[in-house]
Amino acid sequence: MNTTGWIVLIVVVVVVIIAIIAIALTVGRRRKQEHDREHAQELREAAREDDLAAREREAAASRAAADAKQAEVDAERRRREAEAHAAEAGEARAAVDEKLSRADKVDPDVRTDRDGNRIDDGRGSANDRAASDRAAADGADRGYDDRADDAVREPRHAEPRIDAGGPGGAGTTGDTDVPPPRPAR
């Protein structure tokens, strides 16, 4: 073979090698692009799911805020109702006090001062004693004596009973012997 044959052969081999390299690069690039497309699609799906979850959390937060606002409105309404009831109770109490004051003025057994306030001389009327006896009888059922004349009242038990197995555990004061609180007058 002559030199021209060798040159042609070398050129053909180089061209074939370059073609193989070009084909390999093109196929590799296409595979990478396809992989990147699949990865981008997966990222988009994840983003859609995250967006849906975020919107659900925003809706839940909005519902919670609306519930809190409704609770505030309800509390304000109940507060106003309580104030109205308290005002009505105050008016009823004032009416009762006025009636009692008028009754005291009319009753010859009740001594009052110039302003119509009752002066208690310790005797009291028969009606007052009967009412006191009824209140004491009611109070005895609840565990306290309302008939005592002194201002400081001793509880039924001067010292509480110590229960070893009470609700609070060993060595705690049992609340079974403690009288209930006195009702407000």
Rank of each mutant, 00 (worst) to 15 (best):
D146Y: 04
P155L: 07
S125C: 05
P160S: 02
T4A: 14
G122H: 10
T176H: 05
I119N: 02
N117F: 10
E76F: 10
P180K: 02
P181D: 10
E81Y: 09
V11K: 12
A61I: 09
I7M: 00
V15C: 06
K69F: 06
V16S: 07
A59D: 11
E88A: 09
D146P: 12
R78D: 09
V13C: 09
G168H: 04
A87F: 03
E34F: 02
G168L: 08
R118L: 14
D175L: 12
H85K: 10
P179F: 00
A59M: 12
I162R: 15
E56N: 13
G169P: 04
R77D: 15
D36S: 14
A53Y: 12
K105H: 03
G171K: 01
G171C: 01
R156C: 01
A53H: 11
E58M: 15
V178A: 15
R161F: 05
A59S: 11
P155Q: 02
D74R: 06
D36I: 13
R31S: 10
S125H: 08
R182Y: 03
A184R: 05
R37Y: 11
E38G: 13
H39F: 10
G90Q: 08
A151I: 11
D150Y: 09
L25G: 07
T176P: 00
E38L: 15
P155K: 05
R30M: 15
R29K: 12
A22D: 13
A164R: 03
R153Y: 00
R48S: 04
E45P: 05
R111T: 15
H157S: 07
R129P: 03
D74H: 01
L9I: 00
P108V: 01
E91N: 09
A126S: 09
R37W: 07
E34D: 13
A60G: 03
G166R: 00
T26G: 10
G124F: 06
A19Q: 08
E72H: 10
P183G: 05
D163H: 01
D163Y: 00
R153F: 07
E56C: 01
A103Q: 06
A170V: 07
A151Y: 09
E45L: 10
A47Q: 15
S125I: 06
R114E: 14
R161Q: 08
V16F: 15
I119L: 07
V110W: 13
R153K: 14
H85S: 08
A130K: 03
G165K: 02
I7G: 00
R114D: 13
R29S: 08
A131T: 02
G174I: 10
D163N: 14
R79L: 07
L100F: 01
D67L: 07
D107F: 07
A66Q: 14
D163V: 06
Q70G: 12
V16D: 07
I23G: 12
A184E: 15
